[in-house]
Design a protein around this nucleic acid. Structure first.
Lengths: 349, 349
DNA sequence: AACCGCTATGTTAACGCTAACAGGGCGAAA
DNA sequence: TTTCGCCCTGTTAGCGTTAACATAGCGGTT
């Protein structure tokens, strides 16, 4: 008994026409069935669906998008996927978009402005329904493209600056100030800063600026600092902590620009019998989930990542469904400080 | 002094026609310039480029793709972005694709077969140049779609099973066996297993199968096991380790299905003064970078993630440039065992 | 001067689908 | 029975770009 193959070699890719021929109705009707649009009798609907299924037909969105000038894609442009922060933002975005027709498409810039510009150009050439892009700093050309795209643009993560359209994020300057304030209130005096070398991580820079500003207001300044780039952040955190403590042994607080290096520092201190937070206090930034498993809870500040993703996606969804929506929304979330076990909780006098 | 806006409100989106009118040549010539295809005089080229730049024109790939029936997208379908493993695979893919016209588009399935099917359908409807998809297990419908798509398909991560087209990965069964062998050789006898509850993580399952198989060959079996789902993997690793050791205190080895929970277990043991690897040996799986920063190096097995991404992307690239290429490539990488500090290195007798 | 072979540009017809409108058929109201 | 209106289905005309072919011009040959 020979088994007749259902599809005798798919030479030419399938089109609506193939389905229409098999099911004996017009292409238009097939299109209507496949999109659940317009009235189609139950009998026809089933006939068409069966034909489509039997053939293994997959609609061609390229053609569909061109004809309807509707593209259900949302461009999401972020600096990196290995930072954990961004996958979490993606989670928030997906949560919202999963309930809609819209679909996220991710582009990664590696923190390079020229890559951002290229990725953006590439994305816009697919005519997406909206753009979610990290940060407020872009090349002139990128800003021009975003401004002229005629679609909703949401800049995320950061609210310290001028937005093109909508913004969702936190004030990193304020986050830096808040942390500095807590450190000062707890009575620490000799503070070290450890961060990334990247001059293009504007948000880390802004946190640092807010931090030093608030310290200055309390008559303090950063006593020593140490920067890194590349490599395993956890291991780097260890090394940097060792380095800075050897150089300036009387530091009584270390502020890390992210939780990963902060965690490395914490492990270093514990390994070396340093009393935390008595002898030295520690704090990071981000509130990443994995801190929960450490021997001691690192003080940190939650950057509301999932929430940012959700809010940004919601703006795109709202505007996509109602083109009359005005725009220029500003959602400024408030990062909460978590003292953990590494920052003394002392009431301000 | 009023500043004249360059673009007086971009009502109707720009098309080739707009550029052609401004630059005074035909649409075809503009198209040629913008794609660097065919001979165009230097004078015309510059005129066109200037017009395009001034207008802020961004080509419409939807139309371009339809006309040329060429889409420079590669669909990448993976279970998750929060697993670290997958961002690393993405890194490998990007490394290769960045040198080409091709661009990755990511779809996430959350380990759910029906999501995978839906994501795949969605992706295929954009008629990509190739598909890179994690795993060998798919729904029947998904397999049918992949088989009929008529484009290169590379299934990645796993080589234990039947592939549709090309495969790049490691044998997880073999990886499990190899680890079991090392554990047996080191003289451990009472072995516990800790892993995810997910019945759909086929690769973890295959590792476990290989593991028990090799133990059996040595006359041993898994003495106790513990499973988890959700939550911070590091914290879960701690909890599970505590649970299993309370239940079965005389275990002398713990094999974790991934490094994150393994790291949690390691931290637990260190916190509780358990002698590692003397009293208890530990091992994980994946070789994730962040292990470098831990107080002690967890034994693990490198899953060659970046390498897998590179090889998979290379296959797509090769086939895209040479449609005559036959296909059905099988690239089976060999995971290397890293003893770290938590698995005794004892020569087999 | 007629002709060749270029190079640089233009013209035409898809690509596969959907918006918008145009009927055909049929039951209900008059 | 006629007429209106409602379902359901079909027809036509693009969407913005590119492949393929057509052609204008121009210097160099013979």
């Amino acid at each position: 008994m020979t088994q007749t193959p259902v599809r005798p070699i798919p030479k030419r890719p399938l089109t609506l026409r193939d389905v229409s021929e098999v099911s004996g109705v017009s292409e238009m009707t097939v299109s209507r069935v496949l999109r659940n649009r317009g009235d189609v009798s139950e009998a026809t609907r089933e006939k068409v669906l069966k034909a489509a299924r039997d053939l293994g037909y997959v609609p061609n969105k390229i053609a569909g998008a061109l004809a309807s000038s509707r593209v259900n894609l949302v461009a999401v442009i972020i600096p990196s996927l290995s930072n954990m922060v961004f996958p979490e933002v993606m989670t928030g975005i997906s949560e919202i978009l999963d309930d809609t027709e819209l679909q996220p498409v991710v582009g990664v810039t590696h923190y390079k402005p020229e890559r951002e510009e290229a990725v953006l150009y590439e994305m816009l050439s697919w005519r997406p329904s909206g753009v979610i892009i990290a940060g407020l700093e872009h090349t002139e050309a990128a800003k021009a493209m975003l401004g002229a795209a005629g679609i909703p643009i949401v800049e995320i993560m950061d609210t310290d600056g001028v937005a093109i359209d909508a913004v969702v994020g936190i004030s990193h300057r304020r986050a830096g100030r808040k942390m500095a304030q807590a450190i000062v209130d707890a009575g620490y005096k000799k503070i070290g800063f450890l961060g990334t070398k990247m001059p293009l991580d504007h948000r880390a820079r802004k946190r640092f600026e807010g931090f030093t500003e608030a310290l200055a207001k309390a008559g303090l300044e950063v006593a020593d600092q140490e920067f890194y780039s590349g490599g395993s952040a956890l291991a780097k955190g260890r090394e940097m902590t060792e380095t800075i403590l050897n150089r300036t042994p009387d530091l009584d607080f270390l502020y890390y620009s992210n939780d990963m290096i902060g965690a490395g520092g914490l492990l270093y201190c514990l390994d070396n019998g340093i009393d935390v937070p008595g002898q030295i206090g520690l704090a990071g930034f981000n509130g990443i989930e994995f801190l929960d498993g450490l021997p001691r809870q690192l003080a940190t500040m939650d950057a509301c990542r999932v929430e940012i993703g959700r809010a940004a996606a919601q703006i795109i969804v709202d505007r996509a469904s109602d083109p009359a929506a005005v725009g220029k929304e500003v959602v400024s979330l408030d990062p909460s400080l978590d003292f953990g076990d590494t920052l003394k909780r002392i009431k301000k006098v």
